[in-house]
Simulated assay, not measured.
Amino acid sequence: MSPGLIDVHAHFLPDFYVQQATAAGHAHPDGMGGWPTWSVEAHLDLMDRGGIETAMLSMSSPGVHFGDDMAARLLARRVNEFAAGLARDHPGRFGNFASLPLPDVDGALEEIGFAFDTLAADGVALLTHTHGVYLGDERLEPVFAELDRRRAVVFLHPTSPVGWEHSALGRPRAMTEYFFDTARSVTDLLMAGVLTRHPNLRVIVPHCGGALPVLADRIDEFMRLFLPGQQPPAPDGVQQLRGLYYDTAGTAFPRQVPALLNLVAPDHVLFGSDYCWTPPPLADAHLAAIDAAESPVEGTTWRSLTTANAERLFPGRAR
């Protein structure tokens, strides 16, 4: 298959991470039945079968911070070195979105420096919140300032929201709560002015934006009501949302991508498989749906379109 896809939403699960997360109380992460199996060989097999040239690896929920700052720093360093090793051992096949030990800001700043300057990370992965600290929280300002200085790619990933014990109604939080927490956290970024203060950030929102496409006009209206007379005037909410990138992980077709394209231009859509949290049969089915769908840009396929978009976002990945 050609061209080879660049998968911006791909996860890895080394055994040491699963053991540590399980010991911290995450035997059923986000209400799922358990941890999926993952290996380098199985991941490469899926990539080869699906025509995926490069997978940008990231750590999914519940992240690396289980309550202790020092332990989180050590675990972040270990998973980041592991992913960098995969990229080194398999040239061109794997990239790396580094994990940060948030909400430990000092630890996160230290890891940003190490990830970019020593490990040559392609970006960072941030959960929608860590222990209730959402992304618009003023405590995170030094982190976003540093990421802006580096013109970093920031890959967002949802996690169980605060209060999930009541809101999830006993169902897996990945089903709907992920989408709502994505909308909550991105809205927080807009309302707090993070994106206007740090215009060099290049943010990837997962799962076709979750609930954002249908909420965009409502968010914009409330921003006008609650942020009038802001100096300098902030771009409207819809304009800010249009400046973000969105991946197709999950059930992108037949309904999510059309909704997304009512918000953003096709040049801001990227491919995502969500493997290994999406099992191989479903990942194969999602790829088949993408291949069967008509591209919104004449003369392209969804493969060629999303790959060209990713190559502009990651110039080092261009062939």
Rank of each mutant, 00 (worst) to 15 (best):
D117K: 09
T187Y: 06
D236S: 11
L156F: 06
T130E: 10
M47F: 05
T251Q: 07
D30M: 11
T187G: 11
V238N: 01
A115T: 12
L119W: 03
F253R: 02
A293P: 15
G25K: 09
T22Q: 00
A42D: 13
L75W: 02
L13N: 02
N80I: 01
A10E: 03
D274V: 06
P232S: 05
L74R: 14
Y245T: 06
H65Q: 04
L135Q: 15
R173S: 14
H286D: 08
L227P: 03
E298C: 13
A265R: 12
T196L: 04
A310Q: 04
V143M: 03
Q20T: 03
P233K: 08
M56C: 12
E294Q: 15
V238F: 02
D122R: 06
Y245F: 15
F82C: 01
R202M: 09
R171L: 15
A234F: 02
F12Q: 00
D148W: 08
V18N: 01
M47E: 01
M32T: 08
V8A: 03
M1T: 15
R184P: 04
L126C: 10
G229H: 08
G136S: 14
I219D: 00
G163V: 11
A285C: 09
L195R: 03
R255N: 06
R93V: 03
L282A: 15
T159C: 14
R171V: 12
A211S: 03
L195M: 08
L305W: 05
G25T: 04
L190D: 05
F253G: 00
P233E: 13
H129P: 03
V297H: 10
N80C: 01
G136T: 15
F180R: 09
S160W: 06
A21W: 00
L227W: 07
A234V: 08
P36V: 11
L46D: 07
F144Q: 02
A310G: 05
H131F: 13
E311S: 12
A168D: 15
T300G: 07
P3M: 09
Y246V: 10
L119I: 05
V162W: 01
A72M: 06
E111F: 10
S2Y: 14
H207G: 07
G123R: 04
H90E: 03
G237W: 00
Q230S: 11
C276P: 11
L282F: 08
L109V: 13
D45Y: 09
P91F: 04
D15I: 01
R73Q: 04
T251I: 07
T306P: 02
N262G: 12
A174K: 09
A283E: 03
L261Q: 05
V40Y: 07
Q19Y: 05
